[in-house]
Computed example of a mutant assay.
Amino acid sequence: MIRDIGLTYGEVQEATADWRSTTPAQMLQLRHIKNMLTPLKGVSREIASADPLRQEIELWISLIPQLP
């Protein structure tokens, strides 16, 4: 699912810094990303804490509060 976002973590993180001044299309894209990430909150708890996948998911989940 993370691969389906189409942007890197860094690109999304950068976009969150000033999403209020972006175009409506960009805001919609960021909202779509938030909607994709939210269900992963429950999934990450089911993956072993040492697993790199869990670490990647948790990194992405950390962006949720910053997204529109």
Rank of each mutant, 00 (worst) to 15 (best):
M1W: 09
R3A: 13
D4P: 03
I5K: 00
I5F: 01
I5Q: 00
L7T: 12
Y9R: 05
Y9W: 08
G10W: 10
E11H: 04
E11D: 10
E11F: 03
V12Y: 01
Q13E: 14
A15E: 08
D18V: 05
D18K: 08
D18C: 06
W19A: 11
R20P: 13
S21G: 15
S21Y: 10
S21R: 15
T22F: 02
T23I: 05
P24V: 07
A25V: 09
Q26R: 15
Q29N: 07
L30E: 01
R31V: 05
H32D: 12
H32K: 10
K34F: 00
N35Q: 13
N35T: 03
N35S: 11
N35Y: 10
N35F: 08
N35R: 08
M36W: 04
M36I: 04
L37P: 00
L37D: 01
L37K: 00
L40I: 01
K41W: 02
K41P: 04
K41N: 06
S44Q: 02
S44V: 07
R45P: 01
R45A: 09
E46Q: 07
A48H: 05
A50G: 14
D51E: 11
D51H: 14
P52N: 08
L53Q: 15
E56T: 15
E58A: 06
L59R: 15
L59M: 15
L59E: 15
W60K: 04
S62G: 07
L63S: 03
P65D: 06
P65A: 05
P65V: 08
P65K: 11
Q66Y: 13
L67R: 08
